[in-house]
Design a binder for these strands. Sequence first.
RNA 1: GGGCGGAUAGCUCAAUUGGGAGAGCGCAGCCCUUACAAGGCUGAGGUCACAGGUUCGAUCCCUGUUCCGCCUACCA
Length: 890
Amino acid sequence: MPDPEERKSYEPKAIERKWYDFWLEKGLFKPEINPSGQPYCIVIPPPNVTGSLHMGHALNATLQDVLVRWKRMQGARALWLPGTDHAGIATQNVVERELAKEKTDRHQLGREEFIKRVWKWKAEYGGRIIHQLKMMGASADWSRERFTLDEGLSEAVRTVFVRLYEEGLIYRSGRLINWCPRCRTALSDLEVEHEEEEGVLTYIRYPLAGGKGLVTVATTRPETMLGDTAVAVNPSDERYKDLIGRKLDLPLTCRQIQIVADPAVEMEFGTGAVKVTPAHDFNDEEIGKRQNPPLESISVIGADGKMTAQAGARYAGLDRYECRKLVVEDLKSLGLLEREEKHIHSIGHCYRCKTVIEPLSTPQWYVKVEPLAREAIKAVRQGRVRIIPEGWQNSYFAWMENIKDWCISRQIWWGHRIPVWYCRECGEVIVARETPDKCPKCGGASPEQDPDVLDTWFSSALWPFSTLGWPAETPDLKGFYPTAALVTAFDILFFWVARMIMMGLKFMGEVPFRDVYIHALVRDQEGQKMSKSKGNVVDPLTIVDKYGADAFRFTLAAFAAQGRDIKFSEERVKGYRHFINKLWNAAKFISMNTEAEAASSAHEVSDLPSRWILSRLSQAAEEINLALEEYRFNDASNRLYQFLWREFCDWYIELAKTGLEDAGQAKGVRWCLLYVLETVLKLLHPFMPFVTEELWQSLSPAGAGGGSSIMTAAYPRDLPRYPEAEEQMGAVIDAISAVRNIRGELGVRPGAKVNIIVNAYSGAAVETLKKHLPYIMRLAGADSIIIGTGIEKQKPKKAAVNVMPELEVYVPVEGLLDIEAEIERLGKELGKTDKELNFCLRKLMDEEFVNKAPEAVVAKERAKCQELEDKKRNLEDSINRLKSMEVENG
RNA sequence: GGGCGGAUAGCUCAAUUGGGAGAGCGCAGCCCUUACAAGGCUGAGGUCACAGGUUCGAUCCCUGUUCCGCCUACCA
């Protein structure tokens, strides 16, 4: 056990690893250590296997760990269930990039080999983020770690798919979907990121067939004209009314298209006539469907983003953007390009690779979400799931109420293979949990499995119950579902949280978690989102390395105010490292001054400072618990900071130095020092697990550690209060502060002793102060002190004065006092007091205020007025005295 | 286009239900007072974005304006 006395400052590196291993070895992260406690479970938002820890993970993990450590100490059967997500597209991209370096690709490798290769990659690098979470001190139960492609979870996925299919909630359709030409896969609406960009609106002339005249249409995508099958106008548009039904010669092709009417066409936009390309635009697809007969759909862009044969020989094979240029040039040379103008519009991009999305028509699987969403909305409305902070509820409802069907099939290889087979003989669609060996309809041999895999979010939607063992009815499932809280950032509220609620309700008949705590996004100092491309990423592990995990965690918690993003600043971490160092040194002082047995048992303390600090501790503990209950992590950490540094170190330890010299009190003070330290360590532990364990263990073997861990100590709550001690200490602190203030203002050297005269306004205060003279003398730096009430006559002439609500303090500073300066200082003080007093008086003279304001407020105002009047009189008094002396001297 | 959030000390941010605003860092002054200079004591610094309204009273509630974020939507 390292002895803190030997080290001047806290060195995190030396101990973090040691204690983490200790906890693991003792199995303290397992819920079984509190077998009879209330269940408390948090499932981790599974980070991508491809990922490495970023600030968002660090914040997310810290908050979860704070909660779970806190609950565990409260005796809960606490389980933080960790795991990772297979992240279909992202992981496949990573491995494909590797293959590219080897001058090969997945098609050359073949599906089976490729999958093997990804598993190999996963085995090698997939554990990185987990390792990094451990560096952060995460107390997750690693024995229960899950991966979304585990056998059990895969079974859950298949079970869900089959059941939804059987209920008609999963279906296949060939309508337009968002297609990423680079990833070569379909994407759900959510996976498309819309961004405003400046583009060009191109006006193109379409000549009327067999006659004069033309219709001009405007488009941002000229290349799609090759697939136009109509031009649409608003039926009530007078300009075009007569043209409806007429044919147009579609330029650059030998096709003719019809002018049709559709109410969705805005008359004000462009020319009021819109080209219709049902195969490449969601709106146009709708327009096409509304026509009778429906419009033909001609695909001119393929899955690779290149023009197809249908685009015509001249354009086939060209990239869509090259084709755009060529089409415009060709139109220009035909005199059919009317004009081009700048146009700002939003363009969809693939959320994984940022490639511009192409609407394409391919057969895909969909979940019919509306019936599921209805239940999920209800659950939140009824408060069965609480979203915190509440503001996010609106977004949740808005999204859920307009939800569209969810495209779940992806044309990649890494993921859950869709459990659907097609009979090669009769074309029968077979949806089953297990691979069928023959067609149940015609008996045809070895049906062919659908080549696609499921959206990664499909499996993560099941995470809260699939990780607990579902569909098997395991003890964990029974014991921990529904989980207590979900901690996540808002950016996956729809992707993940909403879908978990839907699936949880559907398959467990119960919400997956009671609380959803939405935390902030971590940004850089300028408020920019951190991203690799911007190069403004701060690596959490670098911070841990520099300042230690505890300081980092505490910083994140202190930053985690609800409803606001975090602008990360390393300066702040530095500040909290100082805080830890303060704790370290306080502990050092205490262990130097206490004995092993001091904290062994409960103790009655009689000295005022001790009773005071115990009472303050009680209050702090209460507030911290309350803050944690309400997910106010920043309030909890600030309170801890305030208590430990300002109250315990600045006041109590300084007072205790006097107490320790008093033979009668020393024992109680020693006990109190240790007890408060121990308690504050416990309060701090969820936030800074390592240093608190280290100190706990090294304190006194009999008192604290004793071989066990602070992790299993009871979290402090319901400690005794001593209101009278708090009040009495108020007077002592006021007296000391008053003297210090004078010393500071007058620049009295800290080493120089002064004489003090305290005029207290009440007998009780006099008594308290007299009883605690040694404390006042020490902390105020006095070598003599006179205390009394109404000691007018003893008021020294040549003295600085400080007037407090319940007492006034005189410090004769012979030789040190610049009378002129002191008069000025007091004058300034008087001015301030006067101003306040006037404000206060005016208020009280206002009849309406006195009549209408609550009595308590008026009374408070009266008392304040009284106080200010006293203060004013005293200040005037002092000034006059100094002035008269000036005359004497002069 | 719709919706949400933010504007408070030089900087980063707080402020349980309307009663003259707090912290950390930074800054200034004095100190190596043996737990801690990663420290101690003291201090300066704010028309709470702008304009109205409700109220005895508004940083807080209402309306509008400006400036920033974000989410969402099929105006080609």
